[in-house]
């Protein structure tokens, strides 16, 4: 696996608090990585560091470049959508295409126009006349027409209705993603990206607390539906989490052997949402 991003001891201190606390991780080529964390856990700071938008301590290598020093060159290979509505409001659709076509060496104008042909966007329209969903369609069309190695998405579907949200990820998968591209995405709507991720990273208090590919997550974590009489036995196996449903208990286990769990009850694969909640217990306390 060739690494697109390698971070070692990534640290960023704002005046009063530590946004990144020695985070270390690696992102391989051709992966779709979800960076998930509670508010204020350091997600956006990590992305900013990768994009060269902030200073930091520690070692960070993105496509062989240091984002602090080689930002201009790096951005030819890296695209990002920060969140909805960052396109300037005065910009016209046609101007946006003209501008990117003439300043980005890896932009494919024909591709962009064919993406936009599928939407209701008109070249003369200004961004301020568009709905949030249409702004994202424009932004996505621009970004998908750039042959970049790394695409960073920070809460890309915030505030969109479910039709646009589904369409967003579907278009990304069908028309953009391939084995030469890498996507790094942060979002709070975990359940919507669960099925498209190849890798999962949890971040908490500036540290990476989970970093695994989805297959490993399925092997490592298990959810067991345990009836009341077996609950005590289940607790002895040190579950990560326990919750009650219809008189039964659902236990979440990390790295407990399958046969042992099957004796307790029905074993399922936990959703990322449940895994997240269990991992982040007490974050806001």
């Amino acid at each position: 696996m060739t690494a697109v991003v390698t971070a070692n001891g990534l640290t960023k201190r704002y005046k009063s608090q530590l946004a990144l606390d020695g985070a270390s991780f690696q992102i391989g080529a051709g992966r779709i990585v979800g960076l998930i964390g509670p508010n204020g856990a350091g997600k956006t700071t990590a992305l900013k560091a990768i994009l060269g938008l902030t200073t930091f301590d520690g070692h960070l290598d993105v496509l062989g470049l240091d984002p602090r020093k080689d930002r201009d060159r790096l951005m030819e290979q890296v695209c990002f959508i920060a969140d909805v509505a960052v396109l300037p409001r005065w910009l016209r659709v046609g101007e946006a295409i003209d501008f990117v076509a003439n300043t980005h060496p890896r932009f494919d104008r024909a591709k962009c126009e064919s993406f936009l042909a599928r939407t209701k966007l008109q070249p003369k329209q200004r961004v301020k006349q568009l709905s949030k969903g249409m702004i994202v369609q424009l932004h996505l069309a621009l970004v998908m027409s750039i042959d970049a190695k790394l695409l960073v998405l920070d809460e890309p579907t915030l505030g969109l209705d479910i039709l646009y949200r589904k369409q967003f990820y579907q278009t990304l998968l069908e028309d953009y993603f391939d084995e030469d591209k890498t996507i790094l995405v942060t979002t709070h709507q975990v359940e919507e990206i669960e099925h498209i991720l190849t890798d999962l990273m949890f971040i908490r208090d500036g540290k990476i607390v989970l970093d695994a590919d989805m297959e490993a997550v399925g092997e490592r974590f298990a959810e067991v539906l345990v009836s009341a009489d077996m609950a005590a036995a289940a607790r002895e196996l040190k579950p990560l989490d326990e919750r009650q449903v219809f008189g039964k208990s659902i236990f979440l286990f990390d790295n407990v052997s399958r046969p042992e769990l099957e004796r307790l009850g029905e074993v399922r694969r936990p959703s990322i949402g449940d895994l997240f909640v269990a991992t982040m217990k007490g974050t806001y306390a």
């Binding site: 994009l51 201009d72 951005m75 990002f80 920060a82 960052v86 300037p88």
Partner: peptide, 17 residues
């Protein structure tokens, strides 16, 4: 102005020094 409305993030996503 573009820092206030955050559109700076769009311009900064392009390879412009």
């Amino acid at each position: 102005d573009d820092r206030r409305d955050r559109s700076i993030l769009f311009w900064k996503s392009l390879p412009l020094s």
